[in-house]
Amino acid sequence: MKPLTAAAALLCYLVPAHADDGISTDRPDFVESSQVVGKGRFQLETGLARERSDDASGTRLRVDSTPTLLRLGVSDTVELRIETDGYQRSRSVDAAPSRVTRERGVADTSLGIKWHIQDGDQASGRPAIAWLLHVDVDTGSAAFRGNGLRPSLRVVGEWELADELSVGAMGGFAVDRNPDSGRFATGILAVTVGRSWTDCFRTFVELAGRQLASSRHGGSVVSFDVGTAYLLSSSVQVDAVVSRGITHTSPDWEFGAGLSIKF
């Protein structure tokens, strides 16, 4: 048996499959799923990610992270969430004068709740809808820590279309804090289009406005994303995504690969 096949078989053996309660993940696309994990269920979504940026002055920045989301179902419509970018490592290279700066540490933690308020219906065009409330907490290492508590509120809608197509849209806002100017609000707006090619394999394209803000508050971070996800079983998923920044304040490229398991 090949190593990859053996690993997949081991995961499928260790993780119980629930044919009537399959996995629905919030990764790898930026638009969250409208679904919750279900009462008494626990889901781990984790992976590896890298950002690459090169600015006009010749500075090159690389940031590696381990984004992780833990989801716990407290009812059939509500789940609790803990999210973080995990361990982070950055490397910045300045061309003139030649200088390399390295930072390592852990990212902040986000505590949240998702409320699924409506199931979708393809026949009538009704979307599945969920609300997400999160608060980012300044628990990270000094190099990666934000300022104080930073709440965000998002609403997600998902439409199932013909020919195995789906559309998801997410909008909302976040409140951040600048040590000099105090609190400020940023917008969130993203749309994703996906297609299921088989029962196990799907792909998507996405336009993600992760942060919509004035240049005074860091500018807008907008990317075009392409990704895929594959089910090893009804409870185990692997995925990959590539993002291209389309504003000058966005990372030039982002690459990610992940694993999600439902218990």
Rank of each mutant, 00 (worst) to 15 (best):
Phe42Lys: 02
Thr46Ser: 15
Gly47Leu: 02
Leu48Ile: 09
Leu48Arg: 03
Glu51Lys: 07
Arg52Glu: 13
Ser53Pro: 00
Asp55Val: 07
Asp55Asn: 15
Ser57Asp: 14
Ser57Thr: 15
Gly58Leu: 01
Arg62Asn: 11
Arg62Cys: 00
Thr66Ser: 14
Thr66Pro: 01
Thr68His: 00
Leu70Asp: 03
Leu70Gln: 07
Leu70Ser: 06
Leu70Glu: 02
Leu72Asn: 10
Gly73Trp: 10
Gly73Pro: 02
Val74Cys: 10
Asp76Tyr: 12
Val78Arg: 12
Glu79Tyr: 07
Leu80Tyr: 02
Thr84Ala: 12
Thr84Tyr: 09
Gly86Cys: 05
Tyr87Phe: 10
Gln88Ile: 01
Arg91Ile: 04
Arg91Gln: 10
Arg91Leu: 07
Ser92Thr: 15
Val93Pro: 00
Asp94Gly: 00
Ala96Val: 07
Pro97Val: 00
Arg99Asp: 05
Arg102Pro: 04
Arg102Asn: 12
Glu103Ile: 01
Glu103His: 14
Gly105Ser: 07
Val106His: 13
Asp108Asn: 05
Leu111Thr: 06
Gly112Thr: 11
Lys114Val: 00
Trp115Leu: 05
Gln118Val: 10
Gly120Leu: 03
Gly120Pro: 03
Asp121Lys: 04
Asp121Asn: 13
Asp121Leu: 05
Ala123Phe: 11
Ala123Pro: 02
Gly125Trp: 10
Gly125Ser: 01
Pro127Asn: 06
Ala130Cys: 10
His134Ala: 08
Val137Phe: 05
Val137Trp: 01
Val137Pro: 00
Gly140Cys: 11
Ser141Cys: 02
Ala142Ser: 13
Ala142Lys: 13
Arg145Ser: 08
Gly146Leu: 06
Gly146His: 07
Gly146Trp: 03
Gly148His: 03
Gly148Tyr: 09
Leu149Met: 11
Leu149Tyr: 15
Arg154Gly: 00
Val155Ile: 15
Gly157Asn: 04
Gly157Val: 01
Gly157Leu: 12
